[in-house]
């Protein structure tokens, strides 16, 4: 049909290397997600604190993360910080870039989730003698995380897809980087990247299905 001989065997022979790359991809994605959630919680507290400087920090962070390309943020982490004499390894650059992005988007998700939690709950908690921090931690936070579980899953998928941008700052151990290096060795561009695509697809499907199972288990009433 095509005037082209597919060499799937060559690509399949490299599968173990690519799976190793997939592990690194997952490491970056999971780390950036955990750090992103923690930062987003802190930024949400900044927003709610009522202290003008802190909420301005949160607002600026969210707007920059949401209104510039993820690739730009990764460049910023790599070349931008580099011009301050802070030369980071590709792994750290991509981690910081994606974490920055995650934190921004998740803060916005948390903002939406907070709208669904009635103010009266905080007031009730405060009347019962809880401090502001205690009320946030014990009453608001668990509900907020539960409501934004689905958006968090989406963000996790994006984080996985974003790791492929690491190649632009010289990362060559993640799935995309490994594939690119193998491509330079063998020139089986289509076969190798098709295989990488299949792996990415499988990972994202496993993550979304896993999240759905966890949600069904955790959030039943």
């Amino acid at each position: 049909m095509f005037n082209y001989t597919f060499q799937w065997k060559q690509a399949m022979a490299r599968l173990p290397q690519m799976l190793d790359g997939a592990v690194v991809t997952m490491q970056v994605a999971i780390l950036s997600m955990v750090l992103g959630i923690l930062l987003a919680i802190i930024l949400t507290m900044f927003r709610l604190s009522g202290i003008r400087i802190l909420s301005a920090v949160a607002k600026t962070w969210v707007e920059i993360a949401r209104n510039t390309p993820a690739l730009f943020q990764i460049y910023m982490a790599h070349f931008g910080l580099g011009s301050f004499g802070l030369h980071l390894s590709p792994f750290l650059s991509i981690l910081i870039g994606i974490t920055f992005n995650n934190a921004g988007y998740l803060t916005e998700n948390f903002r939406g989730a907070l709208k669904a939690i009635p103010d009266t709950q905080t007031r009730a908690a405060r009347s019962l003698g809880m401090g502001a921090a205690g009320a946030f931690r014990h009453v608001v936070l668990p509900q907020m995380l539960r409501i934004s579980f689905l958006p968090m899953t989406n963000q996790m998928v994006w984080a996985i897809l974003m790791t492929s941008l690491g190649v632009t700052v010289g990362m060559n151990t993640d799935l995309y980087g490994v594939t690119q290096d193998l491509n330079a060795l063998t020139f089986r561009t289509f076969e190798l990247f098709a295989l990488a695509a299949v792996i990415f697809y499988a990972i994202t499907k496993i993550v979304t299905l896993g999240a759905r199972l966890i949600a069904a288990r955790l959030f039943r009433y």
Binding site: L161, S164, L165, V167, Y176, F190, A194, A196, F200, Y201
Partner: peptide
């Protein structure tokens, strides 16, 4: 598929 594969890979694959 278009939503579960990095855009970078989609572009490389389409180009190839």
């Amino acid at each position: 598929i278009f939503r579960s594969i990095p855009l970078l890979i989609q572009l490389v694959l389409a180009n190839a």
